[in-house]
Design a protein around this nucleic acid. Structure first.
Lengths: 313, 313
DNA sequence: GCGCATTTCGAACATTATTTCCAATTTTCA
DNA sequence: TGAAAATTGGAAATAATGTTCGAAATGCGC
């Protein structure tokens, strides 16, 4: 995930040897000369949390008392390690902060912070919203870089879709289908990023024989269109942050005219929420600022299908 | 949460997640008199993550632009907030660190760190702890009939994306980027199912500062638009089977006028293939006749990104 | 029990993160 | 449209966190 930008700030200029005042003439290049490092024992610094766990549990390394204490604590409380400061971890593990640093160095890390990154990444990954992202820093173009970006975009799409597995408001979804199916005419509204979703929904609705109006604001007549809406009609609005499009204004008009309002949006802060009879939260991940629409489209299709089925009953 | 909303007849059945009991306790004396704090507005500093979420979603607080941005980010990425530093959070949310501090203070916290504690506690609490078992198989059967369709649609999207991992023509992709980047003006063409893809590509191109024309056939002037195309321009055409739209006809005109033609389509049988300088095959899966657009959009975004990068060199 | 090697401790130090403050900007209201 | 208020960006100041290093303690073999 944000590996690039993040670990850069962390690790650079951090090398332990670099602080020695010039003039001592110490050879600092040689790693693990004095301190017993695992590299000397044929190990390599674990790059992921799982690797670290494997090494810890392998039992091949025999630690002295305090360091063993540390190993056990890391094993049993990864969450605390990820979320606390070195002092807090030391306290809970019953050791000194410096012991933690030593422990990290034995494994070849620059320090505790370096080791902690592993835990943070792990926790982030096992969290529902683990998304694909990238810092703005690395825009250097390489032939393979385009492919890399495609991979990132696919990752963002996958993350968006995964979020639908977790907590999706199926109750709200069903209500929404009801209300849309009951409507005389469905107005589909969505601008900017939401416009592709709106067009696809409108198209598939039509293909299913469900009459609908795509409010596309061609000729700037969107407001006039919406001003014709009736009480028995419904608006399906799609809107994402930042909420600076005309969609909220259009929906406000429809709301005044007492049409049913159902909304797909990405947070409770959407101005559409308070105008809506029903709304669904669909959060899309982005990669380098390019947002996926995969989840919104999937939900949109599901709505269309639901309405079509309901109408045919 | 939305309990505070005026007694409109339309407040039932809202709320996506069905989360958050709002249990704000007693009113604590307001410490700050200078900054506009919520305490002054009759609120008290939320003591748990759930309380904070409740306040955020209540909609009773109206934030200015940047602060709203913060609220949305906190809402959508609690994990990142818990695990990152203030600078990292600020970067990802697109605001200044100081804005985060200000935000925290409005709610009565001492600073960002204070607020962050809430997020840390929350994450800690929702962690299995001790275990690292990754269980992706959340097959809750409560999804009902409509939910089943959503699952199918998500599956189709995933399948489409997975196809990009396998055999994707990166060479053709790079050529395509070159040709689009070299063009004076890019015409984006796509009808029916391909139209959402075309609109999103056009939008993001514009956002990247790449001038382009979306040939949407409003006013039936698509042919006249294309008839103006020059030798140094390029057409980005998107077309899927059945190939019965006007896209091939439009592209044929552009081809005669010797513009570069690059195409995203779903088989070698597409009439666009023989008209194109370069083309990419992107196959979308469908579920119950509803086709995903996930892969096409991902490829489209990658193209836009590639062109933007190439142009900025 | 003695001396050597290893481990641990804890305070001094270096680095990084957070907060504060003020000027610049935008918005609001008359 | 202009003045006042509110909001925001940015850098300096402050606080916190992490790291280093020498001295003390511990364990171990002889």
């Amino acid at each position: 995930m944000q590996g690039g930008a993040r670990s850069r700030t962390r690790t650079e200029g951090m090398n332990a040897g670099g602080k020695v005042p010039a003039g001592t003439g110490r050879t600092e290049a040689a790693p693990g000369k004095k301190a017993r490092s695992l590299a000397a024992l044929g190990y390599t610094k674990p790059r992921t949390y799982e690797e670290l766990r494997a090494v810890l549990s392998s039992g091949t390394v025999h630690f002295p008392k305090r360091l063993r204490q540390v190993a056990i604590f890391l094993w049993q409380h990864p969450g605390d390690v990820a979320l606390s400061t070195i002092v807090q971890v030391a306290e809970q593990a019953g050791v000194q902060p410096s012991t933690l640093v030593r422990f990290a160095k034995i494994f070849g890390y620059a320090g505790f912070s370096d080791l902690q990154e592993l835990f943070k990444d792990h926790v982030k990954g096992s969290l529902p919203e683990g998304a694909a992202r990238e810092g703005p820093g690395n825009d250097a173009a390489e032939t393979g870089e385009h492919g890399h970006f495609l991979t990132g975009m696919v990752g963002a799409s996958r993350a968006s879709l995964a979020r639908l597995d977790g907590d999706f408001d199926f109750g709200g979804f069903d209500t929404m289908v009801e209300q849309l199916a009951a409507a005389e005419l469905i107005y589909v509204v969505g601008s900017k990023r939401a416009f592709p979703v709106a067009t696809y929904i409108s198209l598939t609705l039509s293909q299913q024989g469900v009459r609908n109006v795509l409010v596309d604001n061609v000729g700037s007549n969107a407001f006039d269109q919406v001003a014709c809406i009736g009480k028995r009609d419904a608006v399906l609005a799609i809107s994402f942050s930042p909420y600076n499009s005309i969609t909220p204004d259009l929906v406000a008009v429809a709301s005044q005219r007492q049409a049913r309002i159902v909304t797909i949006t990405d947070s409770t802060f959407s101005p559409l929420v308070e105008l809506s009879d029903t709304w669904l939260e669909v959060v899309e991940s982005d990669f380098a600022g390019f947002r996926s629409l995969a989840a919104s489209l999937a939900v949109g299709m599901a709505l269309v299908h639901g309405v079509a089925v309901r109408r045919s009953e």
